[in-house]
Structures are given as C-alpha cells and as structure tokens.
Design a protein around this nucleic acid. Structure first.
Lengths: 168, 168
DNA sequence: TATTGTTATACTCTATAACTATA
DNA sequence: TATAGTTATAGAGTATAACAATA
C-alpha cells in the first residue's frame, strides 16, 4: 500500500488516502451532529438541502436519487420518512404524470435553518480552522474539477434498469 | 445553502460541497469495484489494507476500530467475516491478555494484491486523470494538514464508554 | 475500577425484482 | 417499449447494552 504502486505515485496515494480519511472523519462528525441536533441522517439532510437549494424548492424524484441516494427505492424510503415528518410533500408533476415532484415544506426549511449553523460550525472547526484562504481556493478549484469529471461518467439511478455489462 | 452562510464563506461552502461530492462519488465507484472484484465491502478492504500496512501485519482490535469502524461490535462483526474467509487471524495478545491481535494471512495479502490494481485504476481514472501534479501536491498538503487536525480531536471506539458531554 | 473484546438484539438503510401507470 | 415511481422483501451493516475476563 505505502510502497510505490504500479498505478499511482507516492504523492497520489498520499492524496487519495488523505482525501478518504478527511471525508470519512468529516462525514462521521457531521452525521453525529445532524442526528443529535435535528434527528436527521446524513442522507436525509442532503435531500432537504438539495431541495432548499433547488428553484422553487422542488425536484423530481429521479433527480434527487441521482444526486443523493443510489437507488430509486432507497429514495422512496427516505422520502416517505421525510413526508411523514412533514418536512417534504410529494405530488404528481403537472408536466409528466409519471413523475413525482418533491417539495420542501416550511417545516423542512425551518429544520434545515435550525441545523445548518451547527453543521457549518463543525465543518469549520474540523476542516477550515487552520486552512488558509489560498488553501480553500485551491481545494475548491481542484476538487471542483474532479467533481465535474466524475459527474460526467456515472449513471446511477439509471443503472439498475439499463443493466450494463458488469466488469466481473 | 448557496447564499452566504453565517459561518462559512462562499468559497468555503463550495470547497466543502465539492469535497463531499467527490468523496461520495469516489467511494461509491470504488466500493462497487471492490465488491465485484474481491467480494469485499469498503470497510473490509480498509481493515485489510491497514493490516497490510501495519508493522508485522498485526494490529489490536481497538486500534483497528479507531481507524476504520466506529464501534467495537461493528469491528467484531467484520472481523468474524474476514476470519471465516481465512483473510485474517485473531489471537490473544501476549502483552495484554485482554487484547486481541488481528493479523493478515497470506490469503489476505493475496486478495489485497489482487484487488489493489483495479482499485487504484478507478481512483486514477476518476480523481487523478485530469489533475496536474501540482494539484496533487497541494491536495496532499492541504488535506494532510486537515487530517492531522481532525485526528487529534476525536475519540471514537472510546466514545461509547467514556461517555463525554454531548454537545446537544 | 477501568479497559478489551464478544454477544444478543433491534434498527436503519440499501438494493433487487415485480408491479402499476404514463410517454 | 421505455421511463417514473412504489412496494415487498431480503440482506448487510451498525450501535447499544449486557456480559466475561484481564489490568
């Protein structure tokens, strides 16, 4: 592992491991806070956050599934939980009657607003506290580029149906 | 979310979201490969990788739990699975008879060696393919600093017992 | 008393397949 | 036929609490 691998340089391996560990620690800390402070799982928070961010506070189920969870049924499960708590509503799309539009409710927005400061606080303490603003800019630039690249390739909610050749 | 938050700047939020999405996409892709190629979950691979990396190929259960999983019982569960497949062994520590030393077997090393090239390949394709070597160096430096900071704080396997003041 | 690890148990989450309905 | 979503179901994983054993 630590020795020079055939595919990745020492530097690359180090960067990869650092990324993996940082995101793991960060996600764990943040998830703990969300649970305590808002009784939300990380996935549920992501769903709400995406909706708050979306124009009109609305998104189709499939778009949500692509962004957050990796199966339609998984999102249906989470959406039911959020629906039962009154944090979102689900209604048939006027454009396409097959689609379901998910919308944040006021209660959902309130909960996000309630949870966000503490969330942001943890992130700042853990990740940004001793990063310079140059670090942040570079991080944003480099990871943003990686994200765009990675977004381009993968299907996801489509995969269970489109059944592509499995490598193994 | 996208508006200026009280705690994080626009740049910081962007960096945070990019980090979250990159690591999520990366982990998903890598986990899929590990499952197909070696019938290993991501956690199981991490356990094996840490052992391969450790001096003598051995670590205590608690040290493994701190590094990988977040509860002792969770690690016991994973360790049993790996043990049953002959990838690790568990034996009482000679130093402290309460402790259990976990050691990779040859089969475990072989499996890591078998899986690693494809793993590394995916990481390179998804993450490094269009990053410059300067990007990688900066990423390593910045994330490494963040990791060291985050490592300093958290308990984890200790938490369930040492029961510290909960923030919420 | 504190620490290490296991076990029993309950719960959350995710994915697969089968199904309905619309395009 | 293809797409959108739900449901039933089964499996993996995790955490909590209670436990035994050692320091």
């Amino acid at each position: 592992m630590r020795k020079a691998s055939p595919g990745l340089s020492e530097k690359q391996l180090g960067a990869y491991f650092a990324l993996a560990e940082v995101s793991s620690l960060l996600q764990y800390a943040v998830a703990e806070h969300l649970r305590i402070d808002g009784d939300l799982s990380y996935v549920q928070f992501q769903v709400l956050a995406r909706l708050v961010d979306a124009p009109g506070g609305k998104l189709r189920m499939t778009d949500l599934a692509d962004g957050v969870v990796y199966s339609r049924s998984g999102l249906t499960y989470q959406a039911r939980l959020l629906d039962q708590r009154g944090l979102i509503t689900r209604s048939p799309s006027p454009d396409d009657e097959r689609s379901v539009m998910v919308a944040v409710t006021d209660a959902g927005r309130d909960l996000v607003a309630q949870v966000l400061p503490g969330h942001v606080d943890r992130v700042r303490q853990l990740l940004f506290e001793q990063l310079t603003s140059d670090d942040v800019i570079v991080l944003h630039k480099v990871l943003g580029r990686a994200r765009d690249h990675m977004r381009a390739a993968p299907p996801r909610s489509a995969k269970p149906r489109a059944r592509r050749n499995r490598t193994g």
